[in-house]
Amino acid sequence: MSHGIRPATRGGLLWGAGLAVLCASIALTVTIGPASIGVGDVWSTIAARLGWGTSDLTRLREEIVWNLRLPRVLLAAVCGAGLAVCGAVMQSLLRNPLADPFVLGVSSGASTGAVVVVVLGAGGGALSVSGGAFLGAVCSFALVLLLSHTLGGTPDRVVLSGVAAMQLFSALTSFVVMTGADAETTRGVLFWLLGSLGGAGWTDVWLCLAVLLAVLVVCLGYCRTLDAFAFGQDAAASLGVSVARTRLVLLCATALLTGALVSTAGAIGFVGLVLPHAARALTGPGHGRLLPACALTGAVFLVWADTLARTVLDPQEVPVGVVTSLVGVPAFVLVLYRTRRGVRSAS
């Protein structure tokens, strides 16, 4: 692993390769499932839908590709990318290798919001599950910001406030489920809590993609500012960084993205925590390279994890959060083991 000044061409090659792997993963995973569909069928469907030609597939198969599998795979890619970027930004901003979108309490707030809508019927039908989840995410994040600001606003206070909010909202979720739900609803809620990309539609994909791209552009604008946090917030301030504004902008951006993703796909764990570490092992710590790398690796990871989730117990589906953790933990340990010299010197 080498850092520092690298020829730009090598960077270009890496991104080309990453994008190619992502496109190939998407094309391949769309073909996997009960109805047998080839990569060629996928391309002809996409081409036909975009008006570049005609598809010789039956209407049903075209529907399966275009309205069932493709949105689901794309949503998996967007969620993976978004969660990984959020994790990377928060880990650097809060100087805590354990920070991830869950630490801000956003995910658990979203869960509570969703459960309140599903189980208690809050909003009287006017509020969708994802609407409730988004409201929950916003409330939880506001609480964390308020609490951490009252406690002094240092990074460790933000993390502690997030953990407190996480516990509070998890307890609220459990309470609502235990007291208000019948067995069937409980099963559905549990499934949602562990994350599920089933039922993804094009609206979800476009919405999440739009938020992802906006947040990614903002974060890339702050990439050198994030680099400057390596030696702590005083060092960042002496390098001309406006610490309070940076923290507020980036925390709000990541909370917005997490809220959008969690309200669409449930609380998919582990991606935000682990993928940044894996990406860092690939690109080094500079955020200009790290954030795109997180987006690519996160997308590829979740695309395959979700494919595993929907096929391994076919026709039953495993919550994707279960797969991400089962696959991710060994990978995480491996990454930590291979980068252990950095940890040792810090102890």
Binding site: H3, D227, A230, G232, A235, L239, G240, G284, P285, G342
Partner: peptide
């Protein structure tokens, strides 16, 4: 005394001086 947990090279650290 400055320290970091991030795995930086000497060139990375000196490059931080270009942030402003």
């Amino acid at each position: 005394q400055a320290d970091t947990q991030v795995e930086l090279t000497v060139a990375d650290v000196v490059g931080l001086g270009r942030v402003p």
